[in-house]
């Protein structure tokens, strides 16, 4: 057996919400028996972005905010891979916002996990795009990624978990990974993941989270109902969590990877590029020039 890289112990502060997310990802991958060599974990920049160092498989550390663009490239080069992009809310909703919106629009079969803590922990606690008014002098009202995702027509899997509820979080991640393995499109999972050092919201969030299933008659296949319910829960001063929206199969738009790469075997990274195989077809292209 060839010796290869071993995970290093997490560098997170004791009690960090990201531990719960890491455990959930590992458990979900193991439950679904995803082969190690097919697992690609792409981390962003920030405390949470180091997550790829703490587990086995192929790991890629992206530039700040660019992880989704990298992930799209990986998946479209080899759709057999199970690609998970994981980063923080500063990484995803500030510097990476353009890529986030476009990842929802592109709808490539990836799992995107955002460890949301309302702060830039690694640079010592500045307000992130999700920081509430008043946090460290913040006067801008916070961004909400779930409402945003719901407004993108191709978004088909939108969930929010809480690392204080590891069982629920692992369930959502497993569902997201299944969705991904079936090439159904982009699965977005925001994980409320408190920063114990700069914004310890464990207690507050435990009180505020409300699973959408607690609302009578909630239907995760109903996009407009999902939007209005989330809004109502937020306006009541609470945080909606759970399986927020999952497009019903008859209304789910095809994933980009399935559209541009109909067969798994024939893809940019795996196709035979040898001259021996391709020369006659190349010659045709060259001969067609005038």
């Amino acid at each position: 057996m060839t010796e290869h890289v071993k995970p290093v112990p997490p560098t997170w502060c004791p009690g960090c919400g990201d531990f719960g997310v890491l455990a959930s990802i590992k458990k979900s991958l193991s439950d679904l028996k995803v082969p190690l060599e097919e697992t690609v974990l792409i981390g962003g920049i920030g405390c949470s972005g180091g997550i790829h160092n703490f587990m086995d498989g192929y790991g890629f550390h992206s530039l700040h905010g660019r992880l989704l663009a990298n992930a799209v490239g990986v998946k479209l080069a080899n759709p057999k891979l199970t690609v998970i992009a994981a980063g923080g809310d500063g990484d995803g909703y500030a510097i990476g916002m353009g890529h986030f919106i476009h990842a929802l629009k592109k709808n490539v079969s990836l799992v995107y996990v955002v460890m949301m803590n309302e702060t830039y922990g690694l640079t010592k606690g500045q307000a992130s795009p999700t920081a509430p008014v008043g946090y460290r002098g913040n006067v801008e009202s916070p961004f909400d990624a779930v409402l945003t995702a719901l407004s993108i027509p191709s978004a088909s899997f939108i969930a929010r978990g809480f690392s204080g509820d590891p069982k629920g979080a692992a369930q959502l991640l497993t569902e997201a990974l299944k969705f991904n393995r079936e090439r159904k499109g982009f699965a977005f999972v925001e994980m409320l993941s408190p920063c114990v050092t700069y914004n310890d919201t464990y207690k507050l969030w435990r009180e505020k989270v409300q699973n959408v299933t607690s609302v009578a008659g909630y239907d995760a296949a109903d996009r407009s109902r999902a939007f209005s319910t989330c809004l109502e829960i937020m306006e009541a001063g609470r945080i909606p969590i759970g399986m927020i929206y999952r497009a019903p199969e008859d209304r789910r738009l095809p994933s980009l990877d399935q559209t541009v790469l109909p067969t798994l075997e024939k893809a940019p990274a795996t196709t035979d590029i040898s001259l021996a195989t391709n020369l006659p077809r190349y010659q045709k292209l060259v001969d067609a020039l005038t």
């Binding site: 690609v40 792409i42 890629f60 992206s62 530039l63 660019r66 663009a69 990298n70 992930a71 799209v72 490239g73 990986v74 998946k75 479209l76 080069a77 080899n78 891979l81 890529h99 940019p268 990274a269 795996t270």
Partner: peptide
């Protein structure tokens, strides 16, 4: 970054 992702994947 998409280009890098694809190149990384082979």
């Amino acid at each position: 970054n998409m280009t890098m992702g694809a190149a990384y994947a082979g």
